[in-house]
Simulated scan of single mutants.
Amino acid sequence: MALIGQPAGDSTAMAPAPGWAGVGTVTLRELSGHYDLAGVRRCDQHVLVLVTVGHGQHEIDFRPYLCRPGTLLWVRPGQVIRHNGGAGLDAIVVCWEPSAVAEVADDPALLDGGLGPACWQLAGEDEDAVINEVSQLVVDCQRHRSGTLAAGLLRHQLAVLLLRIALLPGRRPAERNDAYVRFRLEVEKDFTQTRRVEEYAERMGYSVRTVTRACLAATGRSAKQVIDDRVTLEAMRLLAVTDDPIADIGRRLGFPEPTNFGRFFHREAGTSPGAFRSAQRPPPRNAFPSQRRPAAGDLHGRPTPRVAGEA
């Protein structure tokens, strides 16, 4: 099936889907016509990127992924992304707010807490299935721009797309009773407050040995290393996408003394915080379309068309 996408240069394609649906689509080519995508940007919503033509590279949380037709990327809220694609690279981009799926999907593992894979190279029936779902979502985002029925349709279509992704080979949905997943979710809540494995284990009702064994089985790294990895990643994100003083970033991550933060970062990242920041480009803001509820004064319930990134 031929992929149905929005025509490049069509300004109406940049307008969001119904604001109360929290779902929108756009092409990478359209975004590149308005923004410099080579800078690091931090996402405040979920972003799926389905490459349709060309070859290039995307970075998610500073990890590069080679892209070609059929490559599917998933960027979760809070993660950072940088586009290093060639001139011929294009993709369909699907954006949604977490609440858009929560309202129609009872399984919290659908969004996997950010623990699932970030990249797939689709092929065969899996590729056809995902392309069909994305294509229909693109069409309906353009056809159905207002009303509660339209919002429900888009949310359910998005949930079906995510279920298909959950069934892709090599992707095990996160199970809340899994010790490693529970540990990761607890760390996500409080890694800026404590880096002690004992505190997390006690909170979970497990022994430190059980938590460490679960982390080693899942990642090959100890529980303490998993915590330090998360702190380091957050430091890298903040250094790349903010102009905050390095000392302030250290304090936010639980290091009252700047020298302690500098030593920790150098040990974990292999470079100083200042050198890492210097290697990153300033991020353009709001590079992906934001979804908002339409103004109350619109008697027909239609959102006012906006260009992606408009405040």
Rank of each mutant, 00 (worst) to 15 (best):
E198Y: 08
A247P: 03
Q280F: 10
V40H: 05
R172T: 04
A21Y: 08
I92Y: 03
G274I: 02
Y180H: 11
T212H: 13
Q157L: 07
A87C: 09
G254N: 05
A218K: 01
S290Y: 13
T71M: 06
P98R: 09
M236H: 12
M1N: 15
L239V: 07
V197D: 05
D61H: 07
T192A: 11
Y206I: 00
Q57P: 00
L168P: 00
T194I: 05
Q136D: 06
F62R: 02
P7W: 12
A21V: 14
D228S: 08
W120F: 14
V53S: 11
D190W: 10
M1D: 07
V241C: 06
T71F: 04
I246R: 04
V197T: 02
D228N: 13
P18V: 13
R209N: 04
D10E: 15
A13E: 14
V51D: 01
W74V: 06
A118C: 09
E257S: 11
C95Q: 04
V40L: 09
R252A: 14
G297V: 09
T210H: 13
V197P: 00
A295Y: 14
F288Y: 07
C119R: 15
R306F: 05
G78E: 01
P273I: 04
C141Q: 06
H144N: 10
E310N: 02
L153G: 00
G86R: 10
A218M: 03
T219M: 03
L149K: 13
E268H: 10
E125T: 05
T242Y: 02
V231N: 00
P98F: 06
R82A: 11
V181S: 07
T27V: 06
G24F: 04
T271V: 12
H144K: 11
W96S: 00
R306T: 07
A159H: 13
P245L: 11
A269E: 00
H58F: 12
D90K: 11
V53C: 06
A150K: 12
A174S: 10
A174T: 15
N84W: 03
C119W: 14
P289I: 04
Q291T: 04
P77Q: 06
E188H: 09
R209Q: 05
L149V: 10
L72E: 04
H58N: 02
I165F: 12
G250V: 02
A123Y: 15
D61F: 04
R302Y: 13
T242F: 02
V138L: 04
T71Q: 06
Q142L: 12
H34M: 14
G205Y: 05
T219W: 02
T27H: 01
A129C: 10
C67N: 02
T232S: 14
D178I: 04
A311Y: 10
L253R: 03
P77K: 09
T12P: 01
R145T: 04
F255P: 00
G114R: 13
L167E: 01
R263K: 12
L163F: 09
A275Q: 10
G147S: 10
R251G: 02
D228Y: 08
Y65M: 03
V197M: 07
D126Y: 09
I227A: 08
P256W: 12
R184T: 05
G88A: 09
S32C: 13
A217H: 06
V211R: 02
W96A: 02
A13W: 15
G33V: 15
S32T: 14
